[in-house]
Design a binder for these strands. Structure first.
Lengths: 208, 208
DNA sequence: CCGGCCCCTAAGCGCTTGCTCACCCTCGCG
DNA sequence: CGCGAGGGTGAGCAAGCGCTTAGGGGCCGG
């Protein structure tokens, strides 16, 4: 807390951990390009020109185009996981924690949907070692949700016949927000978060 | 019914409508390659060699690589839409029809998950006119689900505060099956279909 | 036997790709 | 002022891309 990439009120500055400034500008340009066209359809010239630099500038700060994707994916997954685990470890009943987790996770996917789209849908473009690292993070994401649902069942709050299957469905539902969410659409990230939290509570048949 | 691409018991032969045989072999190879690596990461040489042909053979049957994707996308969307509309127009209560729609739609996405992955996630790679044609089909998909839910609400079967939002969530949930489903995984398409039908009925709080 | 037809291939064209390299400009420091 | 260091550029390389073209080989009716 209080590190350079956070403001006084504790809210994160996106990509604040990426330095120096030129490296961050390139990374932000890459996120936009990857989200818009996909990793494979994006050229290094496109990324550099979005950042206002020559094609060669990219290779001062990153070894390859794939390393850029890895940095984006790594930071994005870290952030998403932290949001989810914070909600899972919070106070309150299982229903309250599940609703909180879904609400904040979905809000992140909607608010930062360009980043989320890259993070969630360009996994296959990573090299084998980098992909393995990211897959490990995703398992922790799955474990966090499964724990809340499991505790809710144990406490008699939830009625869920298939805990792993329901966990999968809940996460799938949240992640897919990154695919369809449109900033020009009629729903705000808060509204989608509230809607999805309600739907998920219904899925576990929590009293609510 | 009884057309060339259907067997006696009415079950479809996949890609039976694609002729001649060499064109179908190329298309099946393209589906596999696109699903595995993505459209942009797949080369025309890769497609041709999977079909056991030289790179030039592709251009005897298809004008461009994009035309191949369009044929796949068009046929796949037609099939998915037909499955969904058949369930929506069937007999029974809204709950029965919704469960049937979700079950069969999900089963298709799981069973034919390579095709579904291309169909659902490579939309942006299509040219503008082809994309517009596919988007129109997707609107009919949305309309079919919305109609069932709307009728369930009108009949007092469902308790749904936000019909368009719930429709979006239901479709999103089903479509995302194509992303995570793995044939080597522990769940069969039938099991996933049954699980998802139950979860969706809970989302609309149908008596079940 | 032939000649036209239909699939298919070998070779390769023009272009774009990820990435490199020789060089330059700016700036802090003695 | 001289100078080294580090972020930046223009030009371009080797490889791979989508796609084309000239021609080969098997099957057909005559």
């Amino acid at each position: 807390m209080g590190t350079a990439e956070e403001t006084a009120d504790g809210e994160d500055v996106p990509w604040g951990e990426v330095t120096p400034d030129a490296a961050r500008r390139l990374l932000v340009a890459a996120v936009d390009a990857f989200a818009e066209r996909g990793y494979h359809a994006t050229t290094t010239r496109d990324i550099a020109s979005r950042a206002g630099m020559s094609p060669a500038a990219l290779y001062i700060h990153y070894k390859t185009k794939e390393e850029l994707l890895h940095r984006i994916s790594r930071i994005g997954h870290d952030k998403a996981l932290r949001i989810l685990e914070k909600a899972a470890d919070g106070p309150g009943t299982a229903a309250e924690r599940l609703a909180d987790a879904v609400r904040s996770f979905v809000r992140w996917h909607a608010e930062r949907h360009t980043t989320a789209r890259v993070v969630q849908y360009e996994l296959d473009a990573l090299g084998p070692e980098h992909r393995a690292e990211i897959v490990a993070l995703r398992r922790r994401t799955d474990a966090a949700v499964r724990r809340i649902i499991g505790e809710g069942v144990a406490a008699g709050e939830f009625d869920v016949p298939d805990v792993p299957g329901t966990t999968l469905a809940v996460l799938s539902l949240c992640i897919d927000v990154a695919r369809w969410f449109n900033a020009q659409g009629s729903r705000t990230p808060d509204e989608v978060g509230a809607l999805y939290a309600d739907l998920v509570l219904r899925m576990v048949r929590a009293r609510g």
